[in-house]
């Protein structure tokens, strides 16, 4: 508990607790929506609020029927299949191009570094609706609109800023003398890259990749415009479901996706710590 100093006045002490209550309420605001839909997804009725049976914790109030619907309904299954068909490929593209460029950008003499960086990060800043509109216009001209390749290219572009940011962040702490040491011991540049540089920046690359994956997996605006009916992804179906007739199946999917993000968040946290340890930066 709080260790107050003898000179703290009672109003200091009161403020200390009031402040903590305020922060608690804000944390509650942050977590409440996410926490509340998890139990709701086990609702036995088709309601979006707690039924009296649920509040009394009776077993009849709960069921897995919304989960069953998700795993048996062909619409949802196609959507999930499409999502898993698009996101990994888009991620690979972003990570491949992004990592190379990040290594290039972290060299000491890069002309127009700031401008290049600003352009490469811009897909993150430009409102999604504008990216979607532009891609819709341009991809229709070159025949990519409504195709798998079109959606993958678009998602890769959206994921790139995240890879650039995370990988350049890992590279700023990179000790250049390590590559020099490797070179002086006779290793060529390629060997140095794979044996020295790559293992050290790998955590950054992976967490950038996870960001890119989530970006594509969760993206709806661009896919609505660039995609077609046969390329409906999970977010597309959710968006339609929410816009037209909201069905409780969405709550089940939401719960599954929350579990997924908890897993991803833990992975990134572990990677971040590992990277800091490896680079000799102790968390301070």
């Amino acid at each position: 508990m709080a260790n107050f100093q003898p000179y703290d006045t009672s109003s200091d002490k009161a403020w200390y607790y009031i402040f903590r209550v305020i922060c608690g309420l804000i944390f509650f605001f942050l977590m409440f929506p996410i926490l509340v839909i998890m139990p709701l997804s086990f609702n036995a009725g088709n309601y979006f609020t707690f039924t009296p049976e649920m509040l009394r914790l009776e077993i009849e109030g709960f069921s897995l029927k919304h989960y069953r619907d998700f795993f048996t309904n062909p619409d949802w299954q196609v959507a999930m299949y499409n999502s898993f068909r698009i996101a990994p490929v888009a991620t690979l593209l972003s990570v491949g191009f992004g990592t190379l460029a990040a290594i290039g950008l972290s060299q000491s003499h890069v002309p127009f570094r700031r401008t290049i960086m600003a352009i490469l990060i811009s897909p993150m800043i430009v409102p999604l609706i504008l990216s979607a509109a532009g891609m819709y216009f341009f991809y229709s001209r070159i025949g990519l609109q409504g195709t798998y390749i079109g959606v993958v290219l678009a998602h890769a572009a959206l994921g790139i800023p995240f890879v650039i940011i995370t990988v350049t962040a890992t590279l700023t702490g990179f000790d250049k003398s390590l590559t020099r040491a490797s070179a002086s011991l006779g290793a060529g540049p390629i060997r140095t890259f794979f044996k020295i540089q790559m293992p050290l920046i790998l955590p950054g690359v992976i967490s950038g990749g996870l960001f890119a994956f989530i970006t594509s997996f969760d993206e709806v605006v661009v896919v609505l415009f660039v995609g077609s009916a046969s390329l409906k992804t999970l977010p597309w179906e959710m968006f339609n479901g929410l816009r037209e007739q909201i069905s409780p199946t969405i709550l089940a999917i939401a719960t599954i996706l929350i579990t997924l993000s908890v897993l991803l968040l833990s992975t990134i946290e572990i990677l971040r710590r590992r990277s800091e340890r490896l680079r000799g930066i102790t968390p301070s």
Partner: peptide
């Protein structure tokens, strides 16, 4: 040479972003 190597590493991504993102925005 160093500059060229750095630009060479950046070039593929730069071209990629140009085609898949910047030109579409220009089209709009």
């Amino acid at each position: 040479i160093q500059k060229l190597r750095a630009l060479g590493l950046i070039a593929p991504l730069f071209i990629f972003i140009l085609i898949s993102f910047v030109i579409p925005i220009g089209d709009m």
